[in-house]
């Protein structure tokens, strides 16, 4: 192979990745400059960041954080693949967690059955709630961008009401439900670490989504709609049914993640506790970073999880505010948004 042939081969293979790597590099560069400007050593910042993300027990922290983050990323990536945006993942997440808590606490059944039913309940309610927004667009022309976002508030409000009045655990100071019995929880996967069995569930979901995306007729229709919606419609893709399916899948995953967080690490539903870490937001960014391609989205989610855990550790150890890691994430996305223009010109 000649040099040119090798270069063409590399460009074809890595072509789609180059702008992403470029944006990541620019993001780190910008953060380094900010660090310099406020009188910090960038090298110190970056070593603390990386150590805080992967060194020793911090590695498990990162993995534990990556579980819900990757899940919420998939919930964002599925619609994004078809050019649809689900901004309501927080509502679906909260409802899913709340429903899972209720089932795990009050279903009169053996522990394992309660656990399974709680996971299914979380998925189902998340899916149904997302379907409300889809129906709004299909039958009444309410844009999904608007409806998914606005429907977040009633969902969070309802869950907040439930844990303040009928489901309130009077023994705690927080607006939360009672604690779920040990038998109905998702157990630890690696004892002594915060990683629970939810990890396996999310891995399964991710594998399924990637497989469907790449190998199924459904995935083909989704991808081509994302590339050109007019073409998909012209070619006979039933767009309304697809919208509904996409929202059901996205909402189901968001609801499932809510259930996993409640059953695997929080053991009760506390108002605001599922949405406070803003996994749906980071997930949307991660999915955007990969243009909705599921494997890339998951990889981006892992990167963000590492940045976030690293950011916390960095803040603790050298008192560099972790808001810098949010700046880093934002800069990466902004530069990526420019890639079209930059790369087309060169």
């Amino acid at each position: 192979m000649t040099v040119t042939a090798i270069r063409t081969h590399l460009t074809r293979r890595l072509g789609p990745l180059l702008p992403i790597l470029g944006a990541v590099a620019v993001g780190f560069g910008v953060c380094g400059l900010i660090a310099l400007w406020v009188g910090l050593r960038p090298s110190l910042m970056f070593t603390e960041l990386i150590k805080g993300a992967v060194e020793g027990p911090q590695f498990f922290e990162t993995v534990a954080r990556a579980v819900p983050l990757a899940g919420m990323t998939l919930a964002a990536a599925i619609p994004l693949r078809a050019g649809i945006v689900n901004l309501g993942a927080d509502g679906q997440l909260a409802l899913g967690g709340c429903a899972a808590a209720v089932v795990a606490l009050y279903l009169p059944a053996p522990d394992l059955v309660r656990l399974g039913a709680a996971l299914v309940a979380g998925m189902t309610i998340g899916a149904l709630y997302a379907a409300v927004a889809a129906a709004g667009e299909i039958f009444a022309g309410v844009p999904l961008l608007l409806s998914t976002w606005l429907l977040t508030y009633p969902a969070k409000g309802l869950c907040g009401y439930l844990v303040r009045t009928p489901l309130r655990d009077p023994t705690t100071a927080w607006p939360s439900t009672a604690r779920i019995a040990v038998g109905a929880r998702l157990g630890a996967l690696i004892p002594g670490t915060p990683i629970n069995q939810g990890f396996l569930i999310v891995v399964l979901v991710a594998v399924a989504v990637i497989f469907i995306d790449r190998r199924s007729s459904i995935g083909f229709e989704l991808r081509l709609r994302g590339l050109n919606e007019r073409f998909a419609r012209y070619g006979g893709v039933a767009l309304d049914r697809q919208t509904l399916g996409v929202m059901l899948a996205s909402g189901a995953i968001a609801g499932l993640i809510g259930a996993i967080m409640v059953l695997g690490s929080q053991f009760r539903y506390t108002d605001g506790a599922l949405t406070a870490p803003q996994y749906s937001w980071s997930g949307t960014l991660a999915a955007l970073l990969a243009g909705g391609e599921p494997l890339g989205s998951v990889i981006a989610a892992l990167l963000f999880a590492a940045l976030q855990t690293g950011g916390f550790a960095m803040e603790r150890s050298v008192e560099i505010p972790r808001v810098l890691t949010m700046v880093l994430q934002s800069v990466i996305i902004l530069f990526l948004a420019m890639r079209g223009a930059i790369w087309r010109r060169s």
Binding site: F220, R223, L224, L227, N228, R230, F231, A232, Y234
Partner: peptide
């Protein structure tokens, strides 16, 4: 270009 094909997709697709 706008309706009868997806420009960035391959000939296969």
């Amino acid at each position: 270009a706008r309706t009868a094909s997806a420009a960035t997709a391959s000939a296969i697709d």
